[in-house]
């Protein structure tokens, strides 16, 4: 399981960084979303990978066996904040496009 997850994180990081370095604002926003997936999964993975033991307390399971709730709580807030930043960035993107007439990240049209 871990190996799949790590490779997935690696691939998503690669795609995210690549997109982040592209000149179009849309590419950057998609890249950021991609990076945030990778980072969220990474933080989530820090708590260890366990199947079928969600951190819901029931009477017949020992607490020690449950998945680590702390990274989960962290990632949950990270997902929501990620949404907020994506929204903000999208609007900045649109405003910049409206003001400068181009979707280049520098707002200066295409570099020749």
């Amino acid at each position: 399981m871990e190996i799949i997850l790590s490779i997935a994180i690696g691939v998503m990081t690669t795609c995210g960084v690549w997109l982040l370095l592209r000149p179009r604002t849309y590419q950057v926003i998609v890249g950021l979303s991609m990076l945030s997936y990778a980072v969220n999964l990474f933080i989530f993975g820090v708590g260890g990978v366990k199947t079928n033991v969600p951190p819901l307390l029931t009477d017949d399971v020992a607490t020690g066996a449950l998945a680590d709730p702390v990274p989960q709580a962290l990632v949950l807030t990270a997902i929501v904040i990620g949404f907020a930043t994506t929204a903000l960035f999208l609007v900045v993107l649109l405003a910049s496009r409206g003001l400068t007439g181009t979707d280049h990240v520098d707002g200066r049209g295409d570099r020749k």
Binding site: S6, G10, T13, F42, T63, V70
Partner: peptide, 28 residues
């Protein structure tokens, strides 16, 4: 190249982190 290097780095680091025994921190 930069992206791939970062990706490979992340793969190694996250694999290492995930396979290491989780220290008993505040989770308990």
């Amino acid at each position: 190249a930069l992206a791939i290097v970062c990706g490979i780095g992340m793969t190694f680091v996250s694999y290492a982190v995930m396979t290491m025994p989780v220290p008993d921190a505040i989770a308990t």
